[in-house]
Design a protein around this nucleic acid. Sequence first.
DNA 1: CTGAAAGCGCTTACAG
DNA 2: CTGAAAGCGCTTACAG
Lengths: 337, 337
Amino acid sequence: MTKITSAEVAARAGVSQSAVSRVFTKGASASPKTVEKVRRAAEELGYRPNSLARAMVSGKSRIIGLVVAYLENQFYPVALELLSNALQSRGYHLLVFTASNSAASIEDVIADLMDYQVDGIIAASVSLSSDLADRAHQAGIPIVLFNRGQNGEGLSNVTSANIEGAKKATEFLVEGGHNRIAHIAGWQGSSTGRDRRTGFEQAMQTAGLTPFAIVDGMYKRPVAMQSTHQLCAGPNRPDAIFVGNDHMAFGVIDALRQLGQTPGQDISVIGYDDVPLAAWDAYDLTTIRQPVNRMVDATVDILLDQLGSKNAKPRTLEIEGELIIRRSARIPKGQTS
Amino acid sequence: MTKITSAEVAARAGVSQSAVSRVFTKGASASPKTVEKVRRAAEELGYRPNSLARAMVSGKSRIIGLVVAYLENQFYPVALELLSNALQSRGYHLLVFTASNSAASIEDVIADLMDYQVDGIIAASVSLSSDLADRAHQAGIPIVLFNRGQNGEGLSNVTSANIEGAKKATEFLVEGGHNRIAHIAGWQGSSTGRDRRTGFEQAMQTAGLTPFAIVDGMYKRPVAMQSTHQLCAGPNRPDAIFVGNDHMAFGVIDALRQLGQTPGQDISVIGYDDVPLAAWDAYDLTTIRQPVNRMVDATVDILLDQLGSKNAKPRTLEIEGELIIRRSARIPKGQTS
DNA sequence: CTGAAAGCGCTTACAG
DNA sequence: CTGAAAGCGCTTACAG
């Protein structure tokens, strides 16, 4: 029940309270003798500095707010773990807020976050109202959007090269000899969903092909499954589907098998993300890899950069992702996986 | 850049700083007139109370520390999301720490957590040294272990009824006519791993059967896959495998298929957890459901209880989980899924 | 109901 | 290098 304070340590060590503080503040100056005495007393008493008090006076909480919308898509737990590790190793910690993807909910959550005096905010897969972005900017709190592109006051973003990636996937399908290619798109309310769709359309146009169909899968498994049934039940069906992300692609594959079709043979399926599950035998999904580790590193770098220098410019970074060839899509002649 | 303080609001509203504080502190007393003036001034200035300052003086940070070891097993992201939601709705927030499952790492992480003056700690799937548990107890910080059983100073735990669950799974296999039943166990360094193994052994004994084999799968997919290959490659192999959790069971099924065997026909497989993926067609896994939502509710209830009353006794709760019958294990005659 | 004042546990100029 | 003092932004007795 007893919380030891620096004053108590000071008393025991026979020095002033400021001396104790200096010993525990890096960049401080204390004689070896003082350090020794203080450390011993602190040890004996079990003293540890109160981070909250430190945060109050220094104005730096060393807390980063993370806003995340949904964790079912395996991409996010992986990112969260990497993010947490990267930040922890630099002495920062993550205050996590889950938000539904509604403006009101995000609004509330970010306000809460700011009340906690977070040093910075990482928003994964959510968009921010420009009003909100403004407020954070005025409060001097840098924000970086993870896996979502958006411009605005002081907003940085880190995404994969979604348009390029979608093009690669589409080109692979074209090279594979497909010409009835459908796209079950990512949520069109998101930049990733829109960009991947754009890449698909551009590549189709370049190839002189017309999309067989484009539907919004909303990044939701049930929607993707239902779309697959509608698209593939009859005789007039696509010979390939480019899906807006892996999470939906798994649903597409499940639905296809329900219809008695074998992905990679009867019909080709390509996803986007390369989550761990994509590599498992049950799906063996050809997909565009989003290099999570590099995206995380970039996110942390940008954020800490902005924390460091008062007015660092917001940055936008697109990280290229490669096509990972597995067996859910026909492999063009002459190419190998 | 400007952070508005209660003093500035007070000045604008023409009241004292304490009056402003009272308006924003629930359970305070302020005349309607004061409330009105203060709210207006706050609104105009964009004032929000500083949670850190409030935490300092009140001694309640409304932050709950969450320690989590690994997020690959889908059980944890799901739990994390539910936990975060449940806590948020009651005005608490999660400071997340990822720890490897080593004593040293957990030690560091919990110390950090306590430096932030968290009101309570939830430790998911990690064990605590008794020394650590003692320290938290002395600091008056309640800890509840989520999905891990362990006794000790002030430790509460919430788990599913692991022994019972494992028995149900094993009995189902026995009723299905299997008699060469192997167990790829959860990590034997964890209570869940040990309890499920115990349940398996007891049920086998009751049935008058000898386990075909018991190996420690460490809760790791590669280990589970390799064990499956070793167990099932030759002619002398098990006719059923009870696996320590779903995450490993998926690997077991993948490995079995590599060997040309069909789960549910050639060999039966049962997992533990019932993560979302277990219900997907690709695996269609028979498993014991751990009722995450109920486990989360219980965890939050217990924790808030302990926060509320100074010396609430630590509680241990086991929540029963039912067998979810799907197609990865043979269904005994007369039973239906 | 309200204001003046103390105090939460620290860091950080300021003198020495 | 070191101590006394101010102050971070609040809440909460204490008088009135």
